[in-house]
Design a protein around this nucleic acid. Structure first.
Length: 493
RNA sequence: CGGGGCGUAGCGCAGUUGGUAGCGCACCUGGUUUGGGACCAGGGGGUCGCAGGUUCGAAUCCUGUCGCCCCGACCA
């Protein structure tokens, strides 16, 4: 595996094949038999749970509460917001019948034509419509606002081409939906949640995110503004990792959600929505992995420390006592630790396997160490080995985990910075953008220019980034017209 | 929906001018091993995607059909 991966990355011929192999071999997920769908395996799901728990706590700290809305949406709801339906209509799975019957011409079952639904139901591609239809009954007065709701669920979008974690027909996500009495409040909430996402990505996933605003063509269907966090993968491509939308009164109007304000006047409610999905798993994998497999930042690693004894025959008892005790001490410190004394796998196999799975720290003790009172420590991020005194080793682990977390983040940040360029010559741009990287360019603000760039290079405007000066704008490199914004352009997943 | 490719054991593949269906990994049994993915011996497992056709004989040739993968358009 390691060798195969190495060859692939070295040649850089097929980053996506490397990615696919890694996802499968590291036991994260596999392609389901059902078209475009994915089976998330227990190890992959453990990482997702860690993401869920941490994000959920952050949402709640901002006053958000969890709720659940139905998976099936009547077709008529979807047609109420014009832009929204246009954006999603092409990728909806539709339920038309509610019953099967025995096949009269042979084996198996067939759809019972008598069980045709009067109104078709759509499997949710996102829940704005059904939630705003529900909000109508919840919102009457300014005193009912704001409503800050989130749901963890699955959604379905019938994508033409799918890729494990990055784009599957069905995916797991959270979608937050808020209703507010004022435009300002809704807009602030959309921006606030983007910050929550960016902080989470940095603190937990060790992924540096570019925050910014989408151009009109890249905006969510039905939004007035879409805010985004964009990460750079190791091949220099961008990955949109989370979005937050200011929806204005579009859904308030479409679903007739009105309230009486403090001045006793009727007004439509203002909305935001925001989401991140299992795509974050893809971001995690493609940001940090190396030739030996996955590299997990300690804060998302289901196993942070693995302890492996090397023993002959029935010597295992001696190690169980010493290393079992160490495992207990570490887990008393809140560290997720695994003691692997299985005798059906050789040590070399275990080393390679835990590296493949990205476990941040490995502790190994053999007969020599037992005599000398030492233990070998290896950190996954640098692959460096060190022999340390066994006594007090547990004191060193927590700070080392933090150090690893930070190092992984800094590595990713450095890579992004090294692959971010400013560019004002279109011929030069066309050559270089193929190789990947973020290109900071001045843009004339027109969709024509965006379309031209996409047609020539497959690259798109990722966002108008925060933290990049918008002063002294020059001319657009494509049209030569005066620029209205400084944007990041890149090829993306 | 366009352009390319592939369907042979659980997975990855070979199979020449048509002639007894094979290899590696995984699996099972026994033994020796165990400081970087162990070795030896033995064993089980396949209507060659499906349906027709040509032929004494088809995984192989022909026709049809179904499914999957890759590259585009669509997209978090």
């Amino acid at each position: 595996m390691a060798k195969e991966l190495k060859d692939l990355t070295k040649r850089s011929v097929d980053y996506s094949r490397w990615y696919n192999e890694l996802v499968v071999k590291a036991d994260l997920a596999e392609q389901a038999d059902v078209r475009g769908c994915m089976v998330i395996k227990p190890y992959g799901y453990a990482i997702w749970e860690c993401i869920q728990q941490n994000l959920d706590a952050r949402f709640k700290a901002t006053g958000v509460q969890n709720a659940y809305f139905p998976m099936l949406i009547p077709k008529s709801y979807l047609s109420k917001e014009a832009d929204h339906v246009e954006g999603f209509a092409k990728e909806c799975a539709v339920v038309t019948h509610y019953r099967l019957k025995a096949n009269p011409d042979g084996d198996g079952v067939v759809v019972d034509p008598a069980a045709k639904l009067e109104e078709e139901l759509i499997i949710r591609p996102t829940s704005e419509t059904t939630i705003w239809n529900t909000f109508r009954g919840w919102i009457h007065s300014w005193r009912d606002l704001p409503i800050l709701c989130n749901q963890w669920c699955n959604v379905m979008r019938w994508e033409m081409r799918t890729r494990l974690f990055l784009r599957t027909s069905e995916f797991l996500w959270q979608e937050g939906h808020t209703a507010h009495a004022t435009r300002q409040e809704a807009e602030d909430r959309a921006k606030q949640m983007l910050e929550v996402y960016a902080d989470f990505a940095k603190d937990i996933l060790a992924i540096p995110m570019v925050r910014g605003v989408k151009s009109e063509t890249e905006r969510f269907a039905g939004a007035l503004d879409t805010y985004t966090i964009e990460a750079m993968m190791q091949d220099g491509k961008a990955l949109q990792s989370g979005t937050s939308h200011f929806l204005g009164q579009n859904f308030g109007k479409a679903f007739d959600v009105k309230f009486v304000n403090k001045e006793n006047k009727e007004e439509y409610a203002w909305a935001s929505s925001w989401g991140v999905s299992t795509r974050l798993m893809g971001a995690l994998i493609m940001t940090h992995s190396d030739d030996n497999g996955l590299v997990l930042p300690p804060h998302v690693a289901p196993v942070q420390v693995v302890i492996i004894p090397i023993f002959k025959g029935d010597e295992v008892d001696k190690f169980d006592e010493v290393l079992g005790g160490l495992a207990k001490k570490l887990s008393a410190k809140g560290i997720r630790v695994k003691y692997d004394n299985a005798d059906n796998k050789r040590p070399g196999f275990k080393f390679a396997d835990y590296e493949l799975k990205g476990v941040p720290i490995r502790l190994v003790m053999g007969g020599r160490d037992l005599e000398n009172g030492t233990i070998e420590l290896m950190r996954r991020d640098t692959l460096e080995k060190e022999t340390l005194s066994f006594d007090g080793i547990e004191e060193r682990i927590p700070s080392l985990l933090e150090e690893i977390q930070e190092n992984i983040y800094n590595k990713a940040l450095k890579h992004r910075e090294e692959c971010t360029y400013t560019c004002s010559n279109y011929e030069d741009f066309k050559q270089r953008v193929k190789e990947g990287g973020f290109f900071i360019c001045d843009w004339d603000g027109t969709a024509e220019t965006e379309a031209q760039i996409k047609a020539d290079t497959q690259a798109t405007i990722r966002c108008i980034p925060y933290g990049v000066s918008q002063e002294n704008l020059r001319t657009d490199m494509v049209s030569g017209k005066p620029a209205v914004a400084r944007v990041i352009i890149a090829r993306s997943y």
